[in-house]
């Protein structure tokens, strides 16, 4: 205790000295102000870069239904919306689309300041729910055939485009089988560290779950857990194998 009071009194003393020193420095600075030459005029402003935002409403439709795409842009002279739509009018507007399958729409804004791109995905579910491929197929078999795992990049828990496709398919299955619950297991490759990987695996499972919630799946039907890098799918030491192990794995819950 004594030494801590000692050091705190020292700290106070140092503080006083520092304040004193700073006062001197500030004084010196103020004297110099008059000597500073006027700032050169700023260079002519470059043309502002364009910005663009694309949204879809709704972004989940059943086959045959319409979705409306909205765009807003700034500093753009031309806008191109692909696929199927083509050139559209800046700065903002909307159009209806009726995609027959899940489609990612990309809008490109071009202006004097450069380009900007935004995307939105409209997910299309088949008109009729997928029927059992054979009447004899068990739920386990259907689950194994239709429910796909979501894969991740190293050290990441964000949903990649291929994972969006897989999870969208999973959502369709879960929608068609309302009595099916799932456990989503997060897995990581061996290159990360033990404790950090266990947390990362949980966040991967959470990311998959949150994506399915965004597609309208009831969160109560999905439980998450993480194995970290324990219980890997593949035990070789190469990227093919590591990629196998970086996933949110779907397990049928009973």
């Amino acid at each position: 205790m004594e030494s801590s009071t000692e050091s705190s009194s020292l700290r106070k003393f140092a503080l006083i000295l520092t304040v004193a020193a700073l006062t001197v420095v500030i004084g010196a600075c103020q004297k110099k102000v008059a000597a500073v030459p006027p700032k050169p005029a700023p260079p002519p402003a470059a043309p502002a870069a364009p910005t663009v935002t694309l949204t879809a409403s709704p972004d989940f439709i059943t086959q045959g239904q319409q979705s409306t795409l909205h765009w807003t842009s700034q500093n753009a002279t031309t806008l191109d919306l692909e696929p199927t739509v083509g050139s559209v009018q800046p700065p903002s507007g909307s159009t209806s689309v009726t995609p027959s399958e899940s489609t990612t729409y990309t809008i490109t804004a071009t202006g004097p300041g450069g380009n900007a791109v935004d995307t939105v995905r409209v997910t299309v579910s088949p008109k009729s729910a997928p029927q059992p491929s054979a009447p004899s197929a068990t739920l386990e078999e259907l689950f194994a055939q239709n429910v796909k795992d979501a894969f991740f990049n190293f050290n990441m828990a964000n949903i990649r485009p291929d994972a969006r496709v897989a999870l969208t398919q999973d959502a369709a299955f879960l929608r068609a089988h309302p009595n099916v619950d799932v456990t989503i297991e997060g897995h990581c490759d061996e290159r990360g560290s033990l404790e950090y990987n266990l947390a990362l695996g949980q966040r991967r499972a959470n990311a998959a779950k949150n994506f399915l919630i965004s597609l309208g799946i009831n969160p109560d039907r999905m439980r998450t857990m993480s194995w970290g890098k324990e219980h890997p799918f593949c035990t070789e030491h190469n990227e093919t194998c590591w990629q196998e192990n970086r996933r949110a794995h779907f397990v049928l819950a009973h």
Binding site: T18, V24, A28
Partner: peptide, 27 residues
């Protein structure tokens, strides 16, 4: 650049002051 040198000197003076006034540091 003079102000920076000022800071340097001031800190050194402050440290010298500290060294003079401080009780012996605990080992």
């Amino acid at each position: 650049m003079k102000p920076i040198r000022w800071i340097g000197w001031t800190v050194m003076v402050a440290l010298a002051g500290l060294a003079l006034w401080a009780r012996p540091a605990p080992s």
